[in-house]
Design a protein around this nucleic acid. Structure first.
Length: 291
DNA sequence: ACCGCACCCTGAGCGC
DNA sequence: TGCGCTCAGGGTGCGG
């Protein structure tokens, strides 16, 4: 689900509800590996603290709190971070969806997948973190506490240069797609935007990273910036679960050129888009346009 | 050090 | 309708 553009869109739109305010109360589900910090410990640490900033590191959201503490959030595959005022059918189960009248603006009620509910002081809405598959993460970091997950992250994909990618490629025996998905090489790229950027750059996802030229690396870096930047402009891709904090859908899914288009005509040459497993992920490409 | 794989979980969609 | 199967945009930890 959420890759860099979805996380960035989430950051921008949820920040006004959090930043500059104090946490008044939280409600959580029970202990699970979703909570790297246990719900009880999280409550003890978080309640009463003031949120001073909300940043993004790769696909992580990092809330900066008073006295130097940090709260780490990761949306995993199906995580949704949104305001209690959001209305969207994406926040409902298929069965609940089916029983709705066509023009309904369904109001979300916290369910068993809503693992964290944050009430801020003042009049604003609550903030909900819902995650059906529980691949998301919540972790409290005390002042000065290091974190391996953050330290591992490579250059943010919006900053990646072709030269940097080229140099990283030389030491590795994986495919170029595997390199783009490796968060320690470049942070923020997931399956969709890797496929989209490689299409724009004209490089097949299955190419050995070592055999991608410097020039092609430049093209890939440029394509990443373009694709990620454009997706942020349109509010991200809403392909299955992703929903912005206000409940709105992103727009980038309508601009996809290869992802999820298996068998459809390539928008450049008309050949059928192919799909196969590369780097353990379903990968989409045009065999004529990508070399 | 690097690489591929199993695994964490739930739900949707498919063929039968 | 219901069952069993496959698949899903992420990341970690393990053994080879």
């Amino acid at each position: 689900m959420p890759e860099l553009p979805e996380v960035e869109t989430t950051r921008r739109r949820i920040a006004p509800f959090l930043v500059g305010k104090r946490v008044e109360e939280i409600v959580t589900t029970g202990p699970s590996y979703f909570f790297l910090t246990s719900p009880a410990a999280l409550r003890r640490s978080l309640v009463g603290r003031r949120i001073e900033s909300l940043d993004r590191a790769g696909k992580y959201l990092v809330a900066g709190l008073d006295r130097g503490a940090r709260l780490l959030l990761h949306l995993g595959m199906t995580g949704q971070l949104f305001s209690s005022e959001a209305t969207s059918v994406r926040l409902l189960s298929a069965t609940a969806r089916a029983s709705l009248p066509p023009e309904a603006q369904p109001r979300f009620e916290p369910d068993e997948h809503t693992h964290l509910q944050i009430t801020m002081e003042g009049e604003g809405p609550k903030v909900f973190f819902r995650d059906v598959r529980k691949f998301g993460k919540v972790q409290w970091l005390a002042s000065g506490e290091e974190n391996a997950r953050l330290d591992r992250l490579g250059t943010d994909a919006l900053e990646l240069t072709g030269e940097e990618l080229f140099r990283a490629n030389r030491r590795r025996r994986v495919t170029i797609k595997g390199m783009l998905l490796d968060q320690s090489v470049t942070a923020g790229v997931g399956n969709i935007y890797a496929d989209e950027a490689l299409f724009i750059a004209g490089v097949r996802p299955g190419r050995a990273a070592q055999r991608v030229t410097r020039r092609e690396c430049e093209a890939i870096a440029l394509a990443l910036h373009r694709v990620l930047g454009r997706s942020i402009e349109t509010g991200g891709s809403s392909i299955s679960d992703y929903v912005a904090p206000d409940g709105s859908d992103g727009g980038y899914q309508d601009e996809r050129k290869v992802y999820g288009r298996r068998g459809e005509a390539c928008l450049e040459c008309g050949d059928a888009i192919k799909r196969r497993i590369i780097a353990q992920r379903s990968s989409h490409y045009c065999a004529r346009c990508q070399r």
